[in-house]
Design a protein around this nucleic acid. Structure first.
Lengths: 183, 183
DNA sequence: GTCTATAATTTGATAGAC
DNA sequence: GTCTATCAAATTATAGAC
């Protein structure tokens, strides 16, 4: 039952936790080595450069998120329920004083990131908007409704404000607003 | 006419530019010293610790923003025009490939910042929501309208998404949405 | 106020033994 | 794959001359 986890996976998990807490530039290989219980040179064995780790991190995060979205598509949910579940994924990603969405913090740092990392962050946002677009396809058009890009944008912003203010108020208000899109 | 600018002010200007581009943790005293044309030890004369610089940076940014909002209050603008001008301030702060709002990027890094810096970032958001609240005071209540916190939150998020995607689409859509709050 | 010089630490990264 | 050992560079920060 308890599938043992590779060191590489442990490094990625530790890195995700730290980056979502303090950002990409505030995390070092030694931090991660300590977390996993190895030496920093061993981290370099798995990820030669920091860029390699950063890129792998976003790819993994996006894949995990995609898996969650695929699961939603597998159940016969109506638009409102699907949207509620979508917002729920973001809600889970926000833990006050601890973490925000990986791509919210990397998006903020985007101008200073290596192009290949930045591209993967863009791909995360593209995937999210594409999923929403597909979900809205058969829904009645309403010009007062938020677009997919607006929804993703609003949720990411709400996460950052809530994290900074140490209050979920901004996130909850935004979540409620997003759900109104389906009625 | 051309009031000469103190070295301290030049350091702050250089720091703001760099932090808004790549984030707080990616900026060093040597970067700023080079920008201004002095040595890093001279930067330390003006700001003993990096925290001192970070804090001063947010305070200055907030004051400048407050001055802009005070100017809006000085003119007899109706709600729609005032809101348009408010969104315009954010729009100016977003320069694709170059910069986002200082507090958007610091908000994302908030969990890793010194408490006194984080508090100042909170104060920036508080000031913005307070200004909107005051402006909405005499407007007809409408439960479908975005609240001040939602507006600030949505604009900051839109800035981050637009910066990452290198397209103003998210910001423009959000700006339009916010302006609908006044009609 | 700015400089030179330097300290103390951290960081990303590599070589080579096991 | 992991370790020890080490490196070169960068980073925050200080002491003291001018």
């Amino acid at each position: 039952m308890n599938k043992d986890v590779s060191i590489k996976e442990q490094i990625l998990a530790a890195a995700e936790k730290r980056v979502r807490h303090v950002g990409y530039n505030a995390v070092s290989f030694r931090d991660l080595a300590t977390d996993v219980g190895i030496k920093s040179s061993s981290v370099h064995y798995h990820f030669p450069q920091k860029e390699d780790l950063g890129e792998a991190l976003v790819i993994r995060y996006t894949e995990q998120f995609k898996t969650a979205l695929d699961m939603l598509d597998a159940s016969p949910l109506d638009l409102k329920s699907a949207l509620k579940a979508f917002v729920g994924l973001y809600s889970q990603a926000l833990v006050l004083g601890d973490s925000v969405c990986l791509c919210a913090i990397l998006g903020a740092e985007a101008n200073g990131l290596a192009p290949r990392i930045r591209e993967k962050v863009q791909a995360f946002f593209d995937m999210n908007t594409a999923w929403l677009k597909k979900r809205f396809k058969d829904a009645p058009k309403n010009p007062d409704h938020m677009t997919p890009l607006e929804i993703v944008s609003a949720l990411e912003g709400a996460m950052i404000i809530s994290s900074t203010m140490q209050s979920r108020a901004a996130f909850e208000a935004t979540a409620t607003r997003v759900l109104k899109t389906s009625s």
